[in-house]
Structure formats: C-alpha cells, structure tokens
Design a protein around this nucleic acid. Structure first.
Length: 423
RNA sequence: GGUGAGGUGGGUGAGAGGCUGAAACCACCAGUUUGCUAAACUGACGUACGGGGUAACUCGUACCGCGGGUUCGAAUCCCGCCCUCACCGCCA
C-alpha cells in the first residue's frame, strides 16, 4: 500500500502516477487527506485526555501511599468526565483511521515514471524480441492434440478426477514436468537464489501481505474449515516469510526461489484462448523473490528480467519482452515486464513470466523493514518473477519442437528427462 | 481428538495491581585498555503513531499472543479467542 505520509506530502505526484493506470484518484486522495486530518485532530485530543488521566492516576497512587484517602477519593471523581469523553474520542479515532486505511488499501501501487501510459494490453511496449518463428512440418498440431497423440497429457481424465483445468500428466509428459522444475531450480541455485519449499496453503494475513487480499479474494481457492487459502503463486508464502521482520542491512539482498503448484480459480475469465494448457486451475511454477535495498531495486528488476530471458534462451524458445503499461499492470506492482513465448501452432504469444518491482507496496503491508547503516529502520523493496511457469512453456515446447519423428526435447533438458524425443 | 503446561524486548528469562517500557544474563553496537585477536571494563541498546527541532534529540500516546471487561490505575485480576510445546490416541 502507498504510505500515508507519502500521500500527505506528495498528493499531486500520487494522482499523476496513478493516472498512468488510467485511474483518476483525485477524489480518493482528497478524502484520504481530509479524513486523515480529522483523525489526527481527534487522536491528538484523545491522547491529551489519556495523558491527563494517567497523571491523575499517578497522583492518586501517591496520595494512597501517603495515607491521604480523602484527597484520593476526591481525585477519583475528576476522572469520570475524562473517561466519558475518551469513550467518544476512541470510537471516533477508530472509525476515522479505519476509513483512511480502507481508502489507502483500495489504491493500487503508483507506477514508476518509466511505465507507459495506457489502458489495456494493446498499450504495452515490446522491449525486445528474441529468436525467430520456428519452421513447422506440414500438418503441425496445437499442443492439446500433440498431448493426445503421444498420450502425455490427459485433459479429460483430469475433468473426471477434479474438473476442467486440472490436467493429468502421464509418462514422458509427467517426466517433462519434473525435468523442467528441476532445471529451473538448479539454474536458480546457480544464480545465487536460496531454494525454499514453502507451505502451499496460507492464512489470511499472508494473503493480505502480498496484496491478494482483499483485492483478489474470489480468485483463490479457500478452505473455510481451516480458514486457509491455496496459494496462487509461491510469491505469497515466500514473501510472507519476511512479514513483521526487521532485517539487518547485511542480510540484503535476499534471493529466494521456490517451486510450488499454484491454484487459481480464474473466476470470471473466459474466451476462446483457454484450450489445453493455456489457462489452468492448477499448474506448476518456479518463482524467484528478492528483498532488496530501495536504491537497488530497479537494477535488480533488470537483472531478474535478464535471468528469466536466459532460461528461455537456453530452452531455445522464441520470445518477446513487454513493458506493461499502467493499465495492464497488477495491483501491487510499480513496474512489470512480461515474457511471452511464441506458440507456433496457435500462432500467438503466450505469457510465461511476469517480473515485477513492488517497491514498498508489499513491504508496507508486510511490515518488512531493514536497519540501515545509521541504525534507522527503512522500508525494503520486494520483487518477484516467474522463473518459470510450466504450462505455457510446455505448450510452446510441444508445438515449436514437433517434427515428423516426434517432439524434440531441448538439449539442456535431456540430462533431466533421460530422453531426447517424445514419440 | 484427549489431557496438561505456557505465550513478556533480537534470545534466555524475572515481574503477580501504582515505584515497570519492563530486572538480570546473553547477543548486537560504540568507547577504554591491549603488539594483533581474545578477555576485562564503561556506555548505549524495542516498535508504531502524533507534536516540537535543520539535526543529534525531545515531549505525548499506545503496545508484555489477540479482543473485550473490572479499576482512579492492568504485563499483573476476570471472560472469550488464537497459537505454541509436552504426553496419549490416530496416522503419511
């Protein structure tokens, strides 16, 4: 969330930045400032009354000790009015401050100045394109047909067991999944990320910390009996490891990577492009997370983007990098790059990674700070990125690498799969 | 699921209505001493919000798991909830 103190002294800047998302926040910001002013006045009066009450209580204590019971009794009556007044003030402060918080929480993160203005995916900037469109044999098939042809992914079986969007991977299909996970984790290790195996359910506090709650309430699977949410991404449990902590400066940057299955209800999404692996309720993903010093976060964003691109290059996949416009960015992000792989049989780009700098948006919610050289606590910056999400990578691999003899496995994966062709 | 114990500052742990934002010890930081290191000694050392000051700092308030209650006054008493640990049961 945006810091209240920041809004107070940079209201116009906040409005200007949010306009990059196509949002007019002028009214909300005005209400925040007005309500905050009232809340502070109220709190000030409340605290003065509390101070007075504390003082009288202390005096009574002294009187009691020196045996002046009568004077003490007299003092007691003085507190009645204060207590009465306090009751009202406390309720007012609570109401006003809750309103301020509610309003602030409703605001998405302010985009970085380099984020292009825009409303939708059409306004995203293509930063670069790598590789070229692969030449496919005649009668090339989309991945869902390849999956059936080689009996490596069974979508219907998944429907029977759980429902649409829960595919069953079989044989070499399952091995390919495992190989990719292992490959991604090993690469992350080599790049200095510490591997984490987090819980794949989280409590509501964690959901709030990374911004899924209350913004995306309906998008997570929820187990009411235990009040737990199935994670939509490893970002949630991993980033929440740093909730309510004050880190030592020497601990930064923190670099974590973790594999988890991810669960998404995808409520409300629909459309033609959801066949096969394009959109699932359960999928596998290796996520990378960093907690860094503020002055480094934009360099780290570039580094993480380069790292993810390195993976795609090793897999030999034709991809492009998009700089998302304000309107297409996630709620919590200040700047996001999306990586899209080319799906040769579908003739379209598929998003397979999203790398974001959240600046202090998450760390404020998380109360994740670090102690700087001067011994002052300072808000850390958090970033994360998919490195990578499997389904669309698999879709692209199957489609782009199909040959008359079968599906060619990228060289870097062969040590992990133990086979070089799916036939 | 049952029974019992317990949640206090970075850690261990005292406190059992006012003298406690909190003893003591450890860790961390600064300084003194010392060929270096270590040891010893001295000092500083929680967080958040609000007010004042360029600032070092200072004043006020809140916080001893969370939420209520009793009281002039609560870490301390009462009620509810959550969590942790131990043992038993069940079990991958």
């Amino acid at each position: 969330m945006i810091q209240l103190a920041y809004i107070r002294s940079n209201a116009d800047e906040v409005i200007k930045r949010l306009s990059l998302r196509g949002i007019d926040a002028a009214e909300t910001v005005k209400e925040i400032l007005d309500t905050d002013k009232k809340a502070r006045d109220c709190r000030s009066e409340m605290e003065q009354n509390q101070a007075r009450g504390n003082q009288i209580a202390r005096e009574i204590g002294e009187l009691m000790k020196s045996g002046k019971r009568e004077e003490a009794e007299q003092k007691k009556s003085e507190t009645a009015a204060i207590k009465e007044r306090l009751k009202t003030l406390e309720t007012d402060v609570e109401t006003l401050e809750a309103r301020v918080k509610e309003l602030i929480i409703s605001l998405p993160n302010t985009p970085h100045e380099s984020v292009p203005h825009g409303k939708s995916a059409d306004d995203n900037h293509t930063v670069l394109t790598w590789g070229s469109v692969p030449a496919l044999p005649e009668n090339a098939l989309p991945h869902w047909e390849l999956a059936a042809k080689y009996d490596i992914i069974d979508f219907e079986l998944g429907v029977k067991i759980a429902g649409a969007g829960f595919p069953v991977y079989k044989g070499k299909g399952a091995i390919l999944q495992r190989a990719l996970i292992q490959f991604f984790l090993n690469e992350a290790n080599k790049a200095g990320f510490t591997e984490i195996q987090p819980p794949i359910v989280v409590n509501a506090d964690s959901g709030f910390g990374t911004g899924q709650l209350p913004d995306k309430e309906g998008q997570m699977y929820y187990a009411p009996l235990d009040d737990l949410y199935l994670i939509p991404t490893a970002e949630v449990p991993i980033t929440n490891m740093y909730r309510d902590v004050i880190l030592e400066e020497s601990a930064l940057p923190i670099k974590n990577a973790g594999y988890t299955p991810c669960f998404r209800r995808e409520a409300g999404s629909y459309g033609a492009h959801v066949r096969g692996l394009n959109r699932l309720h359960q999928f596998d993903k290796v996520e990378i997370v960093q907690i860094v010093k503020p002055e480094n976060s934009y360099q780290v964003l570039e580094d993480m983007s380069a790292y993810v691109q390195g993976l795609l290059q090793k897999l030999g996949l034709h991809y492009r990098v998009l700089l998302l416009c304000g309107g297409d960015m996630g709620f919590a992000s200040a700047k996001t790059y999306d990586m899209e792989v080319w799906s040769a049989a579908q003739n379209r780009w598929l998003e397979c990674s999203s790398v974001s700098n959240f600046e202090t948006f998450q760390t404020h919610r998380l109360k994740c700070r670090y102690r700087n050289a001067a011994g002052k606590t300072e808000q850390a910056h958090s970033l994360n990125g998919s490195a990578l999400a499997l389904p669309r990578i698999v879709a692209a691999l199957l489609e782009n690498n199909q040959t008359a003899d079968g599906i060619r496995v990228p060289e870097v994966l062969v040590p992990y799969t133990g086979f070089d062709i799916i036939a």
